[in-house]
Amino acid sequence: MALRTLFADPMLRMLVAAVLLAALLPARGEARDTAQLVANAAVFLLFLLNGLRIARRDVLAGLANWRFLLPLILFVFGAMALLGLGLNALSEPLLPPAIALGFLYLGALPSTVQSATSYASLGGGNLALSVVSAALLNIVGVFVTVPVFLLLGGSGQGAVGSAVIAKILLLLVLPFVIGQALQTAAHSFTARYRHNIVWVDRMAIAIAVYVAFSGAVEQGIWTRVAPQAWAALLGLVAVMLLLAHGGAWLTGGMLGLPRADRVSFLFAGAQKSAAVGAPLATILFAPEAAGFIVVPLLLYHLIQLVVAAPLASRLAQHPAGDGDCTAPTTTATDRSAPPR
């Protein structure tokens, strides 16, 4: 049941397909250069569409709710980044350096938009606040993720310099700004083709994952990572997920947030975005490193979807008082299919 619920998510199916394709037919040599150009174009299109869809009024509304938004930003880009740094240090003796560095990279990423808002809604959260905060976190992440990653010592495996900064501005910031500028004129287009645009999003992310993981396969990820290292990696990702959810829930309680806002804080704070992480990795890191660095992100994304459905169901079925600071738990009987 858990696997059926999990693979009902089309994005996850595409990510798995991208990893399998990279494992069987990785892009090498000149083909990798071509694939990288295609990935760059897809990333540009992805952030252009984000700019077209995220309403300016929603951005302004979110900025007005600082009691919720500021602690959330500090949690996502502060507490989670420090957690990633700690797990990076803990995993260094167990994993290849680039995979260990992936925990720091994972911690510095913004949260998801679609799944965080969907599961917050299923769990009785504040849907409007979830949509606005998740969108704003992704906007902030474009400007904050790389500086936080570098500040905490994450430049070791990345080719970080003026050329990379220029690529980030060109492929992430510029298309988003263009999208915001054209938003009013393109409103009817985005409304008419919103379902098709979602599939363009998914394809762009899958291409970025394919390019990144192709580099890891070319560098021999299957032979360089021993079975016991994969087990350690899975355990560390599970620990990060547990601490992220527990920390987000307790933080919402300490802030005295209303129950619905606290549920929204939980999912926005604990979930991490492959939609930003995978494309950004292809820009920030050399191909031979990017595929290793995104491995913790891909595993985290997989497990967060496994956890999110029963957790949202538990929150919806067992509402507690606003002051309850007990972390939510899941049971084997809790089941909920993700929205489509």
Rank of each mutant, 00 (worst) to 15 (best):
T5K: 07
M11G: 11
L15W: 09
L25G: 02
P26S: 06
P26E: 07
R28C: 07
R32A: 15
F44N: 09
F47G: 01
F47W: 10
L49Q: 13
I54P: 03
A55D: 14
R56A: 14
R57C: 05
A61I: 05
W66N: 06
R67T: 10
R67E: 09
A79C: 13
A79D: 02
M80Y: 00
M80V: 00
N88R: 13
P96T: 09
P97N: 03
A98P: 07
A98N: 04
L104N: 02
L106W: 04
A108N: 01
L109H: 00
Q114N: 13
A116V: 09
S118W: 04
Y119M: 15
G123M: 14
N126M: 11
A128C: 02
V131R: 03
V132F: 03
V132I: 08
A134Y: 03
L137S: 02
I139E: 01
V140N: 00
V142W: 00
F143A: 15
V144Q: 03
T145C: 09
G153W: 01
G154V: 05
A159R: 14
A163K: 10
L172A: 05
F176C: 13
I178D: 07
Q180S: 07
A181R: 13
R192I: 02
R194P: 04
D201Y: 10
A206M: 03
S214C: 05
T223G: 12
R224E: 12
R224D: 10
A226I: 04
P227D: 03
P227V: 06
Q228L: 12
Q228H: 10
A232H: 02
A238Q: 08
V239Y: 01
L243C: 08
L255C: 15
P258W: 03
R259P: 12
A260C: 08
A260Q: 12
S264M: 09
F265C: 05
F265N: 02
K272F: 01
A278K: 09
L280K: 06
L280G: 09
I283N: 10
F285S: 09
A286V: 15
A289L: 04
V294E: 01
L298W: 06
I303S: 10
P310D: 11
L311K: 02
R314Y: 06
H318C: 13
D322Q: 11
D322I: 13
G323Q: 13
D324P: 12
C325F: 08
T329C: 10
T330H: 04
A332C: 09
A337S: 14
A337L: 15
